[in-house]
Design a binder for these strands. Structure first.
Lengths: 136, 136
DNA sequence: CTATGTGCAAAGTGTTTGCAAATTT
DNA sequence: AAATTTGCAAACACTTTGCACATAG
């Protein structure tokens, strides 16, 4: 997987690139939870030669480093640069994704008027007991 | 999309099929949140001629009718026949999906020992105000 | 008998990868 | 100079579709 000239401990030192910075700018510029393809087209307006592969690579790098996060909606991978802890309301009709501030999620939590909730999904991400044991 | 001989109001009357019943059995037989491909291989043990396309078609039909639900993990579509309201713990290391009973999610909620939570995602699914208005 | 379901193979979608050239440090 | 990043095209994994035949009601 890694060849001899690369550092074996997984952390390549990142170099900056115009492309990656632009990708981040674009994701930050919107609250629309864009797809990779949308980002590609937007970035292309300013960097006409950028390729879709580069956009994917950079979205993945940015997600890995925590600068943006991935959101799955309707089987589609989307990206989100909102660093505040927040939750999502996903409309089954228009497939829109709307942000819900964490601040509103309290014991007397109510969604804004007009949002009709049909399903709730709560996913915890972390390390399970078995993997925890293997690591220590 | 629909031709003249079909009912226009979208609700074809379903016929039962051995294949669909087996697919449902298999999904119900496990708590492992299987992928379509895993289901395919399991069903194949009993119906050696079933095709992957049929498995996909039936998983979609079953999800549509609410008999199973779809879970996305790490960009992979998975299926779940657990009809109890419940949440998921997704291990970032082994990618395992573990069920968390809703009953445990109370004001003094704690995850079982050993689960280390790094991220929390809460997604509400439903109809947004704009779509609500269009419908009424 | 008629509509729905199936198997197969082909097409589609979204994403990743190998490589030589370009860029960053 | 050395290592990372890019653009391109090809590969990939997963899912859907078109069609002729089979099956359920």
């Amino acid at each position: 997987m890694l060849n001899d000239t690369q550092q074996s401990e997984g952390s390549l030192r990142r170099k900056r690139s115009r492309q990656r910075e632009k990708v981040l700018d674009i994701v930050r510029s919107t609250k629309s939870h864009p797809t990779a393809d949308w980002v590609f087209h937007e970035v292309r307006k300013e960097l006409p030669n950028i390729s879709l592969a580069t956009v994917y690579r950079n979205l993945n790098l940015l997600a890995e480093s925590g600068e943006i996060s991935e959101v799955i909606c309707d089987g589609q991978l989307r990206f989100d640069a909102n660093k505040e802890e927040h939750f999502h309301f996903i409309c089954k009709s228009c497939k829109g994704i709307f942000d819900i501030d964490e601040a509103r999620v309290t014991p007397d939590f109510k969604l804004p008027r007009g949002y009709v909730v049909q399903d709730l999904r709560i996913d915890f991400y972390g390390i399970c007991p078995a993997c925890q044991t293997q690591r220590s």
